[in-house]
Structures are given as C-alpha cells and as structure tokens.
C-alpha cells in the first residue's frame, strides 16, 4: 500500500498538523507526500521528514493559495498510484479532500482520530461525545486526520527522493483576492505546548490583552471560545471547539469560559486542564484537573505575579 499525503506548508516549512498526518500515514503503508505551489524550500523540508519515501512537487503558482479547485484536480490526477489519500484536518485539508473524494466517487472519512486497519478508522461524531468506528467499502480512501490525535513526525531525519508531478489542465473558476492573517509571535494554537483561552467572561477585546503576559510567561498560544469570537474580542482563528480548532496541549487554561460541549470538543484531550471561573457550578469544572473559583480580574494579575517568583 502506498499513501499520498497533501502537506500544508508555509515559508519553506511543513505545518505541524501535516507532520501529524504523515505520522498517521506511516501506519498505513509507504508514504509519499505532495508539495504544491512555489514555496521555495518546502520540498526540501518535506524530504527531510522521517518516514517519507518520495516527495512529489507541483511547482506552479496556481497552487500558491491552496484553492480547492486546482488542488483537487492535481490530487485526482495523482490518485491512480495510491490506496489512501490523506491530509490534516486543517482549513486546507477540509476544503480540498471532500472535493477530491467526490471526483473519485468515494465517501471521505473526515477527522480520523485512530487507524484500526487499512479500511477501518475511528472518528469523533456529535462534537466528540461519541466515537464511531467506520469501515470503508471504497477502493480508495480519502481521509482527513485529526492532528491532535497523532504525535507529529520530527522535522529532520528523512531523505526522500523528489519527483515533479505531470502538468495537467487546471480549472480556472476561483481566484485568490486577499488575506487578512493574524500575525503573532506566539506559537500556533494547534502546535503550542500550552494554551491560554479566554471566553465571554473577558468582557471585551481590550481585556484579552490581560492574557498576554501570562501567555508570554508560559510560552503559550492564546485561544478563545466562540462567544468571545462572535463578540469580536478576538479574530476567528482563535476559536477552539467543535467547529473551530482542536487542540491537545500539555496544559490548557480556560479563563472565563463556561465549558459548553462545543467548546469541550476542542480541548478535552488536553493533558492538564485548568479552569478559572467565578461560577463554581460552571460545567468546565467537570473536566478541569485544577479549578479555581475566582474573579478572573483578580486571579490573572496574581497568577502572573506568582509565576514571576
């Protein structure tokens, strides 16, 4: 069995969720990866991933913004050689892989959290409140991988061969216009060892800045609940949950978050959970290893002072 993994890459490096997808792929067979776009250095970074035996490159500007329409056409063109096509469940993977699946007349298997065998996979349903084991009868499997469930492969150690993909005709029906990306010096949410998240209890965007000294001290990423995003306190890419990002850091600190099931869906696999909430009955305390019933506006400065000691 040979597996093809579509990699998310940026500025010459492979995104961590994609390294988790490679880890998942190594459980299935020989692993080839695909680097699409003109990102210099990405192919070399992919070749260095342990467990990868071939890097297929499609060096064309048409792929630079990872639009689903051309990317899916590329993947379908390559699919003949593979039993499984994988990508991480990132915004790119979720956008592209179902399109690939439909073009191949395959039912995609979204957000796989465990691999039982070549046809059988576990995936969370109902916001992670149930785990379904499903067996695919399709000849080819098209899969997105829940990155938080697989330890990523390292960035070095491999030495895969490079091969250019054949040029194919691409659909010209969608065009990139612009992007508004949140720039941050902090680690990415899905890659951070520590995540500090704020909810509606933060009251406004200005107060969210109170989380920054804490995040700085802990080397943490900052996340948020849907309510905080909807209210405009922080951008959409901060959202953790069923329909936001899935994180499983060593330490997750939920501040002013009630703990709705849709939020828990995105963080309940964290190793250690801390909750700070002034309501002692908040559901977040049912999953927290350490709960502090307190007003966050007094607890936060205290916490920062305590960590500086």
């Amino acid at each position: 069995m040979t597996v093809l993994v579509l990699l998310d890459h940026e500025a010459g490096s492979i995104k961590q969720p994609s390294r988790s997808a490679v880890a998942a792929a190594t459980k299935l067979g020989d692993v080839h990866v695909l680097i699409a776009g003109t990102d210099a250095g990405a192919a070399a970074a992919a070749a260095a991933l342990p467990g990868v035996s071939k890097v297929i490159t499609a060096t064309d500007k048409a792929f630079d913004h990872a639009l689903a329409e051309p990317l899916a056409a590329l993947l379908v063109g390559l699919a003949g050689d593979y039993t499984h096509l994988l990508a991480a469940s990132t915004a790119i993977g979720k956008n592209v892989m179902p399109r690939v699946a439909a073009l191949l007349d395959v039912q995609p298997i979204s957000d796989v959290s465990a691999i039982i065998d070549a046809d059988t996979f576990v995936r969370p349903i109902y916001a992670g409140n149930a785990l379904a084991t499903v067996k695919s009868s399709d000849a080819k499997k098209v899969i997105t991988v829940r990155a938080a469930s697989f330890d990523p492969v390292a960035t070095t150690g491999g030495s895969a061969a490079l091969e250019g993909a054949a040029i194919i005709a691409l659909p010209d029906i969608a065009w990139f216009v612009s992007a508004e990306l949140s720039r941050s010096e902090r680690p990415e949410l899905t890659a951070a060892r520590v995540v500090v998240s704020g909810g509606r209890g933060m009251q406004n965007g200005e107060n969210f800045k109170l989380l920054e000294p804490l995040a700085d001290k802990l080397g943490a990423a900052v996340g948020a609940s849907r309510a905080a995003v909807d209210a405009g306190f922080v951008p959409n890419d901060y959202q953790v949950g069923q329909t936001g990002k899935i994180v499983a850091p060593d330490l997750y600190i939920a501040i002013g978050i009630s703990g709705a099931i849709q939020h828990l869906a995105g963080m309940k696999d964290s190793k250690v959970i801390v909750a700070i909430n002034k309501d002692e009955d908040a559901p977040i305390f049912q999953v927290a290893d350490y709960g502090l019933v307190a007003d966050l506006f007094t607890a936060l400065p205290e916490l920062e002072a305590e960590l500086s000691k």
Partner: peptide, 20 residues
C-alpha cells in the same frame, strides 16, 4: 452508504479534578 458503522462508543470520561 459507503461507510459501515462498526460500532459507536462513548469517549473515555475525564475525571473532574480538584478545586484549589
């Protein structure tokens, strides 16, 4: 359907910890 449900299970329950 192309996916057969082999089984549906509850995820491992997280134990509530302590209040500090």
């Amino acid at each position: 359907p192309r996916l057969t449900i082999v089984s549906v299970a509850e995820p491992p329950k997280r134990q509530a910890g302590v209040k500090v």
